[in-house]
């Protein structure tokens, strides 16, 4: 288990008893998770466990019904004033979101912008940085994900693996505090999964803080500092790769691993 101590300062990401329901369906039941700077955490679990919803609650694409999400000492979606959390306007929330990055299952690249345009959109429009500087950086980031020769292409001209690498570059170009990956390889043809995982492993090696919802057990085993197993809207157990993937304690985890590793 993680060592949750009364640390003098909060971890980079601190989700406190986050709950979410759709109608009578309780998707998240008071889920708490802390992620330290530089940590790579993989969330695994059966579909319907609430993994993606939890991820989307962190950058508030989904508004939790209850609970708090603290990012770098700020409550996402709120302003702390006289002992209360006051909800932020959508405009101010957007500013908060700029410090987090997200990679989607279906890439969600902007089809009317080139690869370079996709990567530069955030730094230029949101962070209002000089486009000359941003372009140099964007080219470097695209070079790193292996797409230096595709900068003038449009997303539709790329393969799924290439699109996802552009999406990663788009998130990285914002220099976020951490990256959220929502099943980044689930929509890919099997032979394209490797190139995306390689890029992600590279980011992890560079010290990027990452929270990854994935079905790729191999990736979790190789790259994760910590594995979190979720089922039925809650965290069943978490720990190192050895603790969760090799010697799980909970019966629910064992059953899941037997099925996916069979």
């Amino acid at each position: 288990m993680t060592n949750i101590q009364a640390a003098p300062q909060r971890p980079l990401l601190d989700a406190v008893r986050v709950s979410k329901h759709y109608g009578s369906n309780e998707v998240l039941k008071e889920v708490s998770l802390q992620v330290a700077a530089g940590e790579v955490v993989c969330i695994i679990g059966p579909s319907g466990a609430g993994k993606s919803t939890f991820l989307r609650c962190i950058n508030r694409l989904e508004v939790p019904d209850a609970g708090e999400v603290w990012v770098d000492g700020q409550a996402m979606g709120f302003e702390e004033r006289d002992g209360k959390l006051h909800e932020l306007t959508e405009r101010k929330l957007s500013k908060q979101r700029a410090s987090t990055g997200m990679v989607f299952q279906h890439f969600n690249l902007f089809p009317h912008l080139t690869v370079l345009g996709n990567v530069m959109e955030g730094p230029v429009r949101v962070q209002k940085r000089a486009s000359k500087v941003v372009e140099t950086e964007a080219r470097a980031v695209l070079e790193r994900v292996g797409l230096g020769d595709k900068i003038d292409s449009y997303p539709s001209q790329l393969s799924g693996g290439q699109r996802q690498r552009v999406a990663i570059a788009r998130a990285v170009a914002m220099k976020p505090l951490f990256l959220l990956f929502d099943e980044p390889t689930s929509a890919l043809d099997p032979e394209l999964v490797g190139e995306v995982l390689t890029v992600m492993a590279g980011l992890a090696a560079d010290g990027m803080t990452m929270l990854v919802v994935t079905h790729e057990m191999g990736f979790a085993r190789e790259v994760a500092d910590r594995v979190v197993f979720m089922a039925d809207g809650g965290i069943v157990e978490q720990g190192t790769v050895d603790e969760v993937l090799v010697n799980p304690r909970e019966a629910r985890t064992k059953r899941f691993l037997e099925r996916v590793l069979a």
């Binding site: 700029a98 969600n108 959109e121 949101v126």
Partner: peptide
């Protein structure tokens, strides 16, 4: 809908999302 979410994820305001991402498409 994913287009709006992607624009949200890079921190675009509602106006930017409409003007830069949704309307052109």
């Amino acid at each position: 809908r994913g287009q709006i979410e992607a624009a949200q994820s890079i921190g675009e305001t509602p106006l930017q999302r409409m003007w830069r991402i949704v309307l052109p498409q």
